[in-house]
């Protein structure tokens, strides 16, 4: 079974037509890969479906806008993978995602 990062990277490559080998765990989805908000909607849909979760994009965006979090915490792909793993774990624990 591929890692969470690999699944995300494959989704981004397919959705945004970005060569898969340029997508690294350290890549920032916005700053490095140039993914815009519309493409990120598509990516979020694919991730939600693939992992059976609902990524709280609005909450994350609000935290960034309020200065309570940085974009790196959510949009550097290895961090995004960690956030997704947490959401999946929370869902599996029955606490909701």
């Amino acid at each position: 079974m591929s890692s969470t990062f690999d699944q995300i990277a494959n989704i981004i490559a397919e959705t945004c037509d970005i060569p898969r080998d340029t997508i690294k765990p350290e890549s920032h989805a916005i700053d490095d890969l140039g993914i815009d908000s519309l493409d990120f909607l598509d990516i979020a849909f694919a991730i939600d479906k693939a992992f059976g979760i609902k990524m709280p994009l609005e909450k994350w965006t609000q935290e960034v806008n309020d200065g309570k979090a940085t974009t790196e915490q959510y949009f550097v792909l290895k961090n995004l993978a960690d956030r997704i793993d947490e959401l999946v774990a929370a869902k599996n624990a029955g606490t909701g995602a």
Partner: peptide, 8 residues
């Protein structure tokens, strides 16, 4: 699908 801030 109902996502966060979007729906399909």
């Amino acid at each position: 699908h109902e996502g966060s801030g979007f729906a399909v």
